[in-house]
Structures are given as structure tokens and as C-alpha cells.
Amino acid sequence: MEQLVSVVIRGEQYTIRSTEDPSYVRRVAAYVDTKLNGVVKGSQPLPPTKATILASLNITDELFKAEAERERFKGLVTVKLDTLSALLGTVLEEGVNGPNGNDRESEVSRA
């Protein structure tokens, strides 16, 4: 259900319409506010549009790096799962055929 959430960014109040939890919307707005403040503090006075563009570039850089890291971890997990699957297949095959490739039922019936 959509809700209206009031937030303040760079001293200006905005009303955001969102289906997200209001605390989440406030957290996102606070993050944007922090990024904008960081851009403004770190330089000479900037027009609001330039500050917004620079903060957007910083946030987008963080997003792209986080996505690249997620993809890297996804690849690592895939490799680990493939390795575990192969090991499990080997163990299960040995369990059925015995460690020397002999069928366990044959070994038991010979005893």
C-alpha cells in the first residue's frame, strides 16, 4: 500500500509516495542527504544542480562497485557448489560401488 513519507534533504522537506516502509524511505533520504552534504563540504560553493549530480555519481559508483562485488561472490559460490557437488557425487558413487569400484552387494554376498 502506498504511503506518503515526509523527509528532509539539504534543509528542504519532500513528501515521498512509496510502498516501502517509512523508516526505510527515511533511511534512504538520510543517505542522500549525507552524500549531498559531503559533496558540498568538500568543495567551494556549488550550485544545487552540480552538487546533486556529483552526489549522484558517488552513489552510482558505490552501487556499481557493490554489484560487481555481488557478482564476484556469486561466481565464488558457484565454484564452491560445483566442487561440493562433484565431491558428493564421488562419495555417493564410492558408497554404492565400494572404494575399489566393486559393488558392495557383491562384496557382502561373497563373505
Rank of each mutant, 00 (worst) to 15 (best):
F64M: 14
A66G: 00
T78I: 06
L54V: 04
K80H: 10
L63T: 02
L54T: 00
L54A: 04
V79M: 09
E62I: 02
G75Q: 11
K65A: 15
D61C: 04
K50M: 11
G75T: 07
E69D: 15
L81T: 11
R72S: 12
K65E: 14
V79H: 08
E62H: 06
L81Q: 14
Q44D: 11
K80P: 01
K74M: 11
A68L: 12
E71H: 08
T60R: 07
K74H: 12
T49Y: 07
P45K: 08
P47Y: 07
V77Q: 07
E71F: 05
T49F: 08
V77C: 06
A68H: 07
S56A: 15
R70T: 10
D61H: 12
I53D: 02
P48C: 09
L54R: 02
A51H: 03
Q44E: 13
T49C: 05
V79D: 12
D61N: 14
L54C: 02
L81P: 01
K65W: 03
R70H: 09
R72H: 11
K65C: 06
L63S: 02
P48L: 09
F73A: 12
L54P: 00
T52M: 12
T60I: 06
E62C: 03
N58V: 01
I53Q: 03
T60N: 09
A51D: 04
L46I: 05
P45A: 08
L76Y: 07
T49H: 08
K65M: 10
I53L: 15
E62T: 02
A66S: 13
T52G: 10
A55W: 01
K65D: 14
N58F: 01
K50G: 00
R70G: 03
T78R: 13
F73E: 08
A68D: 14
K65Y: 06
T78D: 13
L81F: 12
D61G: 07
K50W: 00
V77A: 14
E62G: 04
